[in-house]
Simulated scan of single mutants.
Amino acid sequence: MPTPILVCDDSAMARKMLIKALPSSWNVEITQAANGLEALEAYRAGKAEVMFLDLTMPELDGYGVLETLQKEGLNSFVIVVSADIQPLAQERVKQLGAIAFVKKPVNPADVEGLLRQYGVEL
């Protein structure tokens, strides 16, 4: 059974690049979201066992998504993917429940290593 993956970024190009960076052996069903509101909707529909989440987006940013997931007790394996690599941003997303922070542009080897580190079956 494929793992439901959500890729959330307001840039269609960034979503496409991230999807290409996922391990080819990973059996996934990918859903895309262009903002945080769409991400929460997809999550609530069961389409985000693993979520790749950008921070800077219109309507609801990545911080807002993480805060909502935390407040509602929702459970997802969230990896933040952002060009904002400031230590404070990294610290904040981890406090909000993200398991990892990956900088843009995404390196496929980094993504695979991270997934393996957390025991994701590829």
Rank of each mutant, 00 (worst) to 15 (best):
M1E: 11
T3C: 14
T3E: 13
I5C: 03
I5F: 04
V7P: 00
V7M: 11
C8H: 04
D9Y: 02
D10A: 02
D10M: 06
D10H: 04
S11P: 10
S11R: 01
A12M: 05
A12P: 09
M13Q: 05
A14E: 12
R15N: 02
R15G: 01
K16M: 13
L18K: 00
L18A: 05
I19T: 13
K20P: 01
L22A: 06
L22K: 01
L22I: 09
L22C: 09
L22V: 09
S24E: 15
S25G: 14
W26I: 05
W26T: 02
N27F: 01
V28R: 14
E29C: 09
E29W: 03
I30N: 07
I30H: 09
T31N: 10
A34H: 01
N35G: 02
L37M: 09
E38P: 08
A39W: 12
L40C: 04
L40N: 02
E41Y: 02
Y43W: 11
Y43A: 04
Y43L: 14
Y43V: 04
A45Q: 15
G46T: 05
K47V: 02
A48I: 06
A48Q: 06
E49L: 12
F52A: 06
F52L: 15
D54I: 00
L55K: 01
T56G: 01
M57H: 07
M57R: 08
E59K: 11
L60C: 06
L60E: 07
D61G: 15
D61A: 02
G62V: 11
G64R: 08
V65K: 12
L66V: 06
T68K: 15
T68C: 13
T68A: 15
K71V: 01
K71S: 13
K71L: 12
E72N: 11
E72S: 05
E72I: 05
G73E: 11
G73F: 14
L74K: 08
N75F: 09
S76C: 12
F77G: 00
V78I: 15
V78E: 10
V78D: 08
S82H: 07
S82N: 07
A83C: 03
A83L: 08
D84L: 12
I85V: 15
Q86K: 10
Q86C: 00
A89L: 03
Q90H: 03
R92C: 00
V93P: 09
K94E: 12
Q95W: 06
Q95M: 14
G97D: 13
A98Q: 07
A98T: 05
A100T: 03
F101N: 07
F101H: 13
K103E: 14
K104D: 02
P105E: 07
V106Q: 02
V106F: 06
N107A: 10
N107W: 01
N107T: 05
P108W: 07
A109R: 12
V111E: 08
G113W: 06
L115Y: 03
R116A: 12
R116W: 03
Y118L: 09
Y118G: 02
Y118K: 03
G119E: 13
V120N: 07
E121S: 10
L122H: 01
L122K: 00
